[in-house]
Simulated scan of single mutants.
Amino acid sequence: MNTPITDKAGNQATPFHYGSGHFMPARAADPDLFYDANYTDYLLFLCSTGFNLDSTFLCPKHPPSPSNLNYPSLAIADLNGTVTVTRTVTNVGPSKSVYNLTTKPPTGFSVKISPTVLHFSRVQEKRNFFITVEAKSGIGQPKRGEYAFGWYVWSDGIHMVRSPIAVLSA
């Protein structure tokens, strides 16, 4: 068929409609890379959005940006400059693993991820990487208030860990 996926109204669907892909239980049992976020991470995320659901937790005066939640997907609101976030992955696959990066930046934005190769020498080893998203100027820039979508993938040649990127243009 080769036609785009559409929403209920017949408009072309976005990753907000279909997510990052189909859930495959067999692959979920063998993820290789894991994005770890603990209870405090989620509380800080909620603080950054103006909510605090735990009365025993004191939100900091300047909470981190919601984009900094250590989550596979990346969402950035109202970007008109440059944002850099950190992600941390844990190797839960073979002890000696190497993951290479592939990216497709959202239209109108550049995406730089560093490093572009993750080397692991043991199970449970953690590696940080940095994602910098910058709004381009000129032709191709989404209209103010519109989302643009892209993705990045870490692959060891067997496993593909795909993460969507959503950027709201300011």
Rank of each mutant, 00 (worst) to 15 (best):
L74R: 02
F129W: 09
L53M: 12
D78K: 13
A29C: 04
S67G: 09
A170W: 03
T6K: 13
D54G: 03
G138Q: 06
S137N: 14
F51T: 05
F51A: 15
G81F: 01
G19P: 00
F149N: 02
S114L: 14
A37R: 09
A28R: 12
T86V: 12
W154Q: 02
S65N: 14
G50I: 03
L43D: 00
Y42W: 12
T14E: 00
D156Q: 05
V83I: 14
P60D: 07
P64H: 06
K8G: 03
Q141L: 11
C47I: 06
A13N: 03
L44W: 05
V161I: 10
H22V: 08
V123M: 07
K104H: 10
Y71A: 08
M1K: 13
V167M: 00
P115M: 09
K143C: 02
L69R: 05
N91S: 06
W151E: 10
T88H: 05
T14D: 02
F129N: 07
T6S: 05
T40P: 00
K104I: 12
G145M: 06
Y152F: 09
S121N: 15
L53A: 09
C59P: 04
D7M: 07
A13L: 09
P106W: 01
G108A: 01
D78C: 08
F109H: 04
N100K: 12
S137A: 14
S48G: 11
K126D: 13
D30E: 15
L33S: 01
R27T: 13
E134C: 04
R27L: 15
N2G: 11
F57Y: 15
Q124K: 06
A148D: 01
N100A: 09
I5S: 11
Y147Q: 04
S114Y: 10
T56C: 02
T116P: 12
G150L: 06
G150V: 04
Y99D: 00
V89I: 10
V133M: 12
S163R: 07
T90A: 14
Y71E: 11
L118F: 10
K126G: 02
T40W: 05
P72L: 05
R127F: 01
V98Y: 04
Y71M: 09
T102G: 06
D54K: 08
K126P: 01
H62S: 13
T14S: 14
P94K: 14
D78F: 15
K96C: 04
L33G: 01
D30N: 15
V161T: 07
L101C: 08
G93L: 12
Y147A: 11
Y147R: 10
A135D: 02
A166T: 00
R127D: 03
M1S: 14
L58F: 11
T40E: 15
A28M: 14
Q124S: 10
D36C: 06
L168A: 02
Y42D: 03
K96D: 13
F23R: 02
N2D: 11
F34P: 00
R87P: 04
D78M: 11
I113V: 14
T103S: 11
V133Q: 08
N11P: 00
M160P: 02
Y39P: 02
P4F: 14
S55C: 03
T103Y: 01
N52E: 06
G81W: 00
A166V: 01
P94I: 14
V117M: 12
Y152W: 05
M24D: 05
A13G: 10
L58T: 09
I158R: 15
G138S: 06
S169C: 07
C59N: 04
F45A: 03
C47P: 10
P63W: 11
